[in-house]
Design a protein around this nucleic acid. Sequence first.
DNA 1: GCCTTTTGTGACATGTATGTGACGATCACT
DNA 2: AGTGATCGTCACATACATGTCACAAAAGGC
Lengths: 229, 229
Amino acid sequence: MKQPRLLLVEDDPALAELLEFRFQAEGYTVLSTPDGDEALLLAAEEAPDLVLLDWMIEGTSGIEVCRRLRRDKATAHVPIIMLTARGAEDDMIRGLETGADDYITKPFSPRELIARVSAIMRRIRPALAGEQITVGDLTLDATAHKVTRKGQILALGPTEFRLLKFFMEHPGRVFSRGQLLDAVWGTDSDIELRTVDVHIRRLRKGIELEGTLDPVRTVRSAGYALEAV
Amino acid sequence: MKQPRLLLVEDDPALAELLEFRFQAEGYTVLSTPDGDEALLLAAEEAPDLVLLDWMIEGTSGIEVCRRLRRDKATAHVPIIMLTARGAEDDMIRGLETGADDYITKPFSPRELIARVSAIMRRIRPALAGEQITVGDLTLDATAHKVTRKGQILALGPTEFRLLKFFMEHPGRVFSRGQLLDAVWGTDSDIELRTVDVHIRRLRKGIELEGTLDPVRTVRSAGYALEAV
DNA sequence: GCCTTTTGTGACATGTATGTGACGATCACT
DNA sequence: AGTGATCGTCACATACATGTCACAAAAGGC
């Protein structure tokens, strides 16, 4: 399953960094540049699934970037969301005429922007924008098969992924090793109970990050639980 | 079911009171303060699930509060919604950069704010609380395998936990050592009766807190009981 | 007050549960 | 066949809980 790719064209470094961070946390691969010409290059070479385009950028203007994206056959179908300053309705209208799919006026909440992007992604690639569960600083996207923690994408093995998914569907609750075997391995598996311990350890190692606490709680003589840290 | 906790930082007394009232009606526990420094204290001590932060407050400014909340590991992940005056776009952008999750501009309808808060709460806390028993100031959650007293989480050994659970299922009732052995250790255990005393002691030690009385009552030549203090 | 019975408490050896690294087996993919 | 990833299991180390004892303290009964 390919990760959705997003091209961000924004010349305010602070805002760019913020959006980059947030979208990575949502499971997107983010390409970012403040420059219009570079954006065109990136769009041609990296084939993003969606473009977030600031209207007021250095070099080639937003509207020009938009027009050229539409003209090139390789990028003509890529959805474009414009980011515009409040009150620039003229630009907005011209932008929509030029081929942008949606616009959003600054200031906007990242949540709102993410919602619009997800909506478009769902329309374009239904399989990608899956349901996701969030527990504490962990986010799991079942359909994209991706786990992130504080925006960092984590690499988990298949079993660890299923284990974490099960935990995240029942946060805070304690499960015995037997229950975990039934839920994650299947009811009819004759696996050693202690094997669960090993996978718990692998899960812990897989989700540990600099400066984070272990959300997996050991309950002696009872089992394990995932805490919403 | 634990109530969601909400920290409101708002220096307009009328608005604060209104929001307090409305959110309490929605089932939230509301902590409220007009002061930024006090807000930081409250956030650290009371562990709210969500912060509503007015931008223009006395003392430490909203943006500073936001930044400090994010910097403290204990509160870094708590969602923040900014309340801003209309037309203060600059503040808003800086706020989102600083780590706020959403914003809403005054004047807003309480209904709208409640909707946004609910949306975030749904996303963050899917279903935390399981079945729990409460006796006096003690609360025991069997599925999460957790005991709290006055909000403090207590660390009990497995046997102490089972013992307390049994007591809490029959509050006020006196049990002989033999009955407790049957109920907590199992009918076929050949344990010394006096062993119960030791575990009672360990339980007492495990649940003692500053400024609390011992809820475990000794009934001479009969047994023990748990009192609803 | 004095004696007897009952309970509180600290320490300890023991047993049990869990953490952890390594290893061979298996499977998918090339 | 070869490579790499993942899996289940084991052996060992470690941390923790347990049951028992000996003695101190308290509570009744007289």
